Computed example of a mutant assay.
Amino acid sequence: MTHIELTKAGVDYPVMRSGRDRGRGVGDLLGGTIFKMESRTFVRALDNINLDLREGVRLGLIGNNGSGKSTLLRTLAGILPLSRGTRTYSGKILTLFSTVAGIDLRLTGLENVQRLAALHQLDPKRIPDVVEDIVDFTELGDFFDLPVGTYSAGMRARFGFAFMTALEADILLIDEVIGAGDKRFHSKAEKRLETFTASGGIIVVASHSTAVLSALCTRAVVMRKGRIAFRGSVPKASAFFTASETGGATGDDPSAEQPAA
């Protein structure tokens, strides 16, 4: 059964300083808080994270820059090692963290599909179907035969999303890039993700746009300083986040102790 789980998970980074100001802002970059142990400085990027995601979950991550959203995604992906706690999963994980990850901007859309297919060890017999799917989904038209470097941010987002979701996967982790698309793209992406989760897949999306998360996700967590401050439906999580930004919510919500899925 497809699942991914973090139990009491924590991620700490040692900060190397060579000058008085070096390392300032690292906590904001990574998420979490800065602390000192003996003579060393650390960033606690994630602290006591508990997530148990099962088949069919579409989870959104809400939070400001530095809240820990991207760190959490990379921890779920196994890119960042845990300092504490455990990570278990079952299924194939794919990530979409950048619209240009693995893409050669000098190559055309078609050439990039062929290149990415080789990188992901896609069966060559499937490539024509994948190309047809991407052309249909992205609606790039003649741009598909032009270098990807000529694409707008939204076009790159459609291209990257279409390719990654055309691959066979069980868990899809997406960081911000989906927000670059327009309303039509979000509508098509929503339908594709619904199909993905209906077949048992798991999706985790980080975005600054609560509108995007409302369209794509059924549940959400609010991240604050590397911790989960709230979890629940997307509307309730969005309301909690907005209230916390305006001073209306000052502490962790009791529902944060309930399962996210």
Rank of each mutant, 00 (worst) to 15 (best):
G251A: 15
L146Q: 15
S209C: 06
G23A: 10
D145L: 12
V57Y: 08
T246E: 11
T242H: 12
E190R: 15
R184A: 15
T246Q: 08
G63V: 11
T246S: 05
I171N: 07
G102F: 13
A249K: 12
E111R: 13
E139L: 00
V148Q: 02
E257F: 14
K92C: 04
T242C: 04
A261N: 12
L122F: 09
L116C: 02
L29D: 03
A180M: 14
M16G: 06
S209A: 06
M223C: 04
A206T: 10
R231N: 15
R84Y: 14
T165L: 15
F163C: 03
S90P: 00
R156G: 01
P128S: 05
A261P: 06
A153F: 02
I4T: 05
L76P: 07
T150C: 02
A101F: 09
T2C: 10
V131E: 10
T71K: 01
S214K: 13
A229I: 10
M164T: 08
G149Y: 02
R224Y: 07
F159I: 12
D145R: 14
M164K: 12
F185M: 07
L51N: 01
I174C: 01
L167H: 10
V222E: 03
P254T: 12
A198Q: 15
E176S: 03
D133M: 06
L193G: 02
E190L: 06
G200Y: 06
N48Q: 12
G60C: 05
T7K: 15
G160L: 06
L116H: 11
E139G: 11
V148A: 14
L73S: 02
R54S: 13
K225G: 03
A206S: 13
G179W: 01
A239W: 07
H186F: 04
F185I: 03
D123W: 07
E257P: 00
A260W: 09
T165S: 15
D52Y: 06
A117L: 03
V222T: 00
S18Y: 13
T99P: 03
C217I: 06
S83W: 02
S70M: 02
R44F: 05
F35V: 08
K125G: 15
L193M: 14
A169I: 07
I174Y: 05
V221K: 04
I4D: 01
R227P: 01
H186P: 03
V205H: 09
L94V: 14
L173H: 11
D52Q: 09
T88G: 12
P81T: 13
G85V: 05
G251W: 13
P147A: 08
S209V: 09
A169Q: 13
T7P: 04
I62V: 14
R17I: 09
T95Y: 01
R231M: 10
L167C: 14
A166D: 03
A166R: 11
H208K: 01
S90H: 14
